[in-house]
Design a protein around this nucleic acid. Structure first.
Lengths: 243, 243
DNA sequence: CTGGCTGATGCAAATACTGCAACACTGCGA
DNA sequence: TCGCAGTGTTGCAGTATTTGCATCAGCCAG
């Protein structure tokens, strides 16, 4: 069982990197053309890949349907759902929940004030680890290998005057964050936004983070920091629910 | 090859409907416990499913990463990308691109005025077919079976004074839409929003739709309708690119 | 403590998959 | 126009993977 499924997964991953033809794939996997053809045919049948008229294979629609369900079933999201809504009721600000998945950090839930300013963030959106509160909160609790994986491919683009733009500077800040057990984003990504974030752990280590965000004109960092005790308590409750 | 992969896909679909245990799945698929156990072990290895401490299996994180890539590689999205941006430049309004995938309609791209009012819609969000312009534009070009599939599970919730709340009324409107080759949403979902939409076809039939949306106070339906010739031309160009 | 249920692994039988060969079709260059 | 090279597609027989059984370990409830 293992072999077919494992290889099918590898083929899908390979197609995910860009469209591929039967011949390309058969060379990559050292399989006969006919075999690869049949494999792709099967994958197409179940909607995991899609064949273009040109003969190139791309990812299939079914994966998109699945991901929506995967989101809903996410352990972290489920465990945190009630807690972050309760937190939002008390603090009033926008609350974000981010998860560490594979080697990227993704927003998986958010609660925002329907009447407030709507910020540009989207559930499912990947977060830049080095210039976001949740990103830094998660990085701080990762070991060297984990940090490297998450930061691989970082552009270190300078979005504002305050953006951290080197690994060294980031590592220094992460040590502080790790000690104090919370992270801030003080205008590091957008000039008018600041937030504070705390990590969430399971028995496997850090799995995500939650943050409370505000427009700096409305609430500045010292004001946001008053929410930290409640945030840490919330994170603790979620962590406990995850085991 | 075919059998393992096909079954693996069915198992994943089954898990997508809700967490399942090894025993449940082995009964559903009439497989030996040990076999199902190994199958799930393989799927877990490649990140397609995730095992909870409780022994239940849920969808894995890897599916979420894949879906993002699947979106980017979407034929319709690629083919339409430049065209809808050009359309946006001319008309100025928010332009939505929706795709018919399996039996749901999903926003796959949108271009909006960064300075304008930001509407609540999200790429990846499922669209309610019976009270949206793109939904009705797509439904109109589907046959009986297709319509049933897409509308299965509709709640027919009445969002505004103008929402269509029965299949009969919808079918009547769809006939008109089909003839005139465009659809409108005149305050059917939100009281202050209206839009016009046109379908996009490939050789396989209707595959999506694009719409131009406006706050009714800013542009009402007759004003939006002036964009229709350009929209239809855009849809035609996209259709041609799809083959 | 014991009985039942689930998780996990080795092994031989059985089945599904592989590679080959062959053919059809396409597009390209001679 | 023709032939050629590359690709898509299918049937078939050998082989290798997967399957089911038997078995054992661990856990919880009675």
């Amino acid at each position: 069982m293992s072999k077919s499924v494992r290889r099918a997964a590898l083929i899908i991953d390979s197609i995910a990197e860009g469209p591929k033809t039967v011949v390309e794939l058969s060379l990559m996997f050292d399989l006969h053309r006919s075999t690869m053809f049949r494999e792709l045919q099967s994958l197409e049948e179940v909607g995991y890949v899609h064949r273009r008229k040109s003969g190139q294979y791309t990812l299939g629609l079914h994966l998109i349907s699945l991901s929506k369900l995967a989101f809903d079933n996410l352990d972290l999201r489920e465990a945190a759902h009630d807690h972050i809504r309760r937190l939002h009721k008390v603090v009033g600000n926008t609350v974000h929940l981010a998860a560490l998945m594979e080697s990227s950090i993704v927003y998986v839930d958010k609660v925002e004030d329907p009447n407030g300013v709507r910020m540009y963030s989207r559930i499912g959106k990947a977060v830049l680890p080095y210039c976001s509160g949740v990103g830094k909160a998660i990085l701080a609790d990762l070991d060297e290998g984990g940090r490297n994986a998450v930061l691989a491919g970082s552009t270190w683009e300078k979005f504002t005057e305050h953006t951290i733009t080197s690994r060294d500077a980031l590592d220094r800040e992460l040590e502080i964050i790790k000690k104090q057990r919370w992270a801030a984003d003080d205008r590091e990504f957008e000039d008018f936004v600041n937030c504070v974030a705390v990590p969430i752990h399971s028995s496997m280590g850090v799995v995500g983070a939650l943050s409370v965000t505000a427009i700096r004109m409305v609430q500045n960092l010292p004001q946001l920091k008053t929410h930290l005790p409640l945030m840490q308590q919330t994170a603790e409750l979620i962590s406990r629910e995850l085991g």
